[in-house]
Design a protein around this nucleic acid. Structure first.
Lengths: 113, 113
DNA sequence: TTAACATGACACCTTTTGGTTTCATTTCAA
DNA sequence: TTGAAATGAAACCAAAAGGTGTCATGTTAA
């Protein structure tokens, strides 16, 4: 449950883990339910779940002999915001000139503060 | 230069690479310039740059004996959008509020007519 | 009460990662 | 023109990642 940018981006680096997040966005699932949707062993899924939990992206609670996993998407927001920093770079379709302009405007904004 | 979600998220997984992106967002730099800003060898930096390039996040062109690296942020947009899918999960309250506001404005507009 | 279920806990394996050192090659500048 | 600068390239290494299989333990349902 660190949820710093590192543990979040690390959790997102694996395609299986990203798919697990998408599944959990639709419904909460027990470990075996998740494993059924992939071609790898339950043990491997379990390791992925641990890494997702370390990133704070999911939480799980025991219910009888099951462990229900659910999405806790708040840390995704920080990754989203990290990427949002670059929004000014990609949304203008940048020539080098335009990039210079964007940079100048950003610098001006900073000195205004 | 694959720039699929996998190569992008993979490139973002390492903290050094994320920092390199932030540096290149400020200014284009040669390899040695980048290496000066970290405590690891130029060779290691070079490997990171290769991975960033595979993700389509940077491009580099030779200029004399230097290789200038620059940000090509478009692929970051796809990662941003992937995360945006979860926006409704982390900001449920906000989106509800926005929906209310939108509704109110629409109603107001209708009464204005 | 017992067999099937769901998971936890290990031990083990291979490949990838992130890093190093060393040496060669190209280019610039005094 | 010649040495320093910038990079390319290769060999090597330890640790982490992503898997597997096996066995033990608590739970549930017939």
């Amino acid at each position: 449950m660190n949820s710093g940018p590192q543990s979040v981006f690390r959790a997102l680096a694996d395609p299986t883990r990203r798919q697990i997040l998408l599944h959990l966005a639709k419904e909460n699932m027990a470990i075996a339910d998740i494993a059924d949707r992939f071609d790898i062993t339950r043990t491997a899924i379990n390791k992925h779940l641990t890494i997702l939990e370390e990133g704070g992206l999911i939480k799980s609670e025991v219910s009888g002999r099951e462990r229900r996993n659910s999405l806790t998407p708040e840390p995704l927001k920080s990754a989203f915001e990290w990427l949002g920093y670059f929004e000014n770079f990609w949304d203008v379709k940048l020539s080098d000139l335009q990039r210079e302009i964007a940079k100048d405007m950003k610098e001006k904004k900073e000195t205004d503060q």
